[in-house]
Structure formats: structure tokens, C-alpha cells
């Protein structure tokens, strides 16, 4: 048991992302309501984004905004600055997530207008008729 607790504490950040991802994944495959599925997908994306951002952290490093003249005259060591690449990639991922949410909400609105419900099984029943 003590080994298990030390294992959790050593990699606790990954446990947080995996638990967030499990919440989102369960909402995506276990719930019947389409809006709840969409919310689950958003939670899933948040978990992935958090994991990538945490991959860029270096202990004791500062933010990736430098002093221009200082850097141009003296240069800089890479270990002093956190990794900026995951931030850039996740900035674009957030934009994609916003676009997906907008289009999905529009399609859900059209589905509600046509079938009068958002429950998956009731839509399937009406499709079968």
C-alpha cells in the first residue's frame, strides 16, 4: 500500500489528467443526451491540453517572454525558460475545440428542431419508423 501511495505521489499530475479523461470518456459513451456527450468531449479535450502543457514545465524556469536586449547581448540558456512548443500547439488545439463546439451545437440545434428531442434512443426510435 505504501508503495502504491509513493507511486501516486511521484506522478500525481498524470493521475489528474487520466481521471479527467475518464470523466469525459464516460460522459461520451455512457450518457444518452447529446449535449452531455458534447460536454464530455470538452472535458476530454481539457485533459489532453493540460497534459501537453505540463509536458513543457521545467522546475525553477521562468516564462517564455524574454528581455530582448539582454538576450541579444548575452544570450540565454535553454534550461532557464520553460518549453514554449506545447503552449503553441495547445493554443491551436483550443481554437479547434471552440470550432468543434460551435459546429456541434449548431447540428444539435437542427436535430432538436427536426426530432423534438435530444435523447439518443428516442431519436433512433423516430429514425426507425
Amino acid at each position: 500500500m505504501e508503495d502504491f501511495i509513493t507511486l501516486v505521489i511521484a506522478k500525481y499530475n498524470y493521475w489528474i489528467y487520466v481521471i479527467l479523461m475518464m470523466i469525459g470518456f464516460y460522459a461520451m459513451i455512457g450518457k444518452k443526451n447529446l449535449v452531455k456527450k458534447l460536454l464530455g468531449m470538452n472535458i476530454f479535450q481539457t485533459a489532453i491540453i493540460l497534459m501537453f502543457v505540463s509536458a513543457g514545465v521545467k522546475k525553477g524556469a521562468s516564462i517564455p517572454i524574454l528581455d530582448k536586449h539582454e538576450v541579444l547581448t548575452h544570450g540565454i540558456e535553454a534550461a532557464q525558460i520553460v518549453n514554449p512548443l506545447p503552449h503553441v500547439l495547445m493554443l491551436t488545439a483550443i481554437v479547434v475545440s471552440v470550432s468543434i463546439t460551435g459546429v456541434a451545437l449548431a447540428v444539435i440545434l437542427r436535430i432538436y428542431r427536426k426530432y423534438g428531442t435530444l435523447e439518443e434512443d428516442e431519436i433512433m426510435e423516430k429514425l426507425g419508423q
Binding site: 506522478k11 500525481y12 499530475n13 505540463s54 509536458a55 513543457g56 514545465v57 521545467k58 522546475k59 525553477g60 524556469a61 517564455p64 517572454i65 524574454l66 528581455d67 530582448k68 538576450v71 541579444l72 544570450g75 540565454i76 540558456e77 535553454a78 534550461a79 525558460i81 518549453n83 514554449p84 512548443l85 506545447p86 503552449h87 503553441v88 493554443l91
Partner: peptide
């Protein structure tokens, strides 16, 4: 968490951190 020698932090990003300001004159690397 926070390992400076992590594989994500040693290969490509070092070039960006060290050269981005000299190459583009933009202090914000992101």
C-alpha cells in the same frame, strides 16, 4: 513533473529558446 531533462525539453525547443529572439526580434517566444 518539471524534469529539465525530459525528452520533450531537450531536442527541438532549445533551438527556439536560444535563437528565436535573434532571428525574429520578438521577445515573446510563443
Amino acid at each position: 513533473w518539471g524534469d529539465p531533462q525530459a525528452p520533450a525539453s531537450v531536442h527541438l525547443s532549445t533551438h527556439y529558446i536560444e535563437e528565436a529572439v535573434a532571428e525574429t526580434h520578438v521577445p515573446n517566444i510563443v
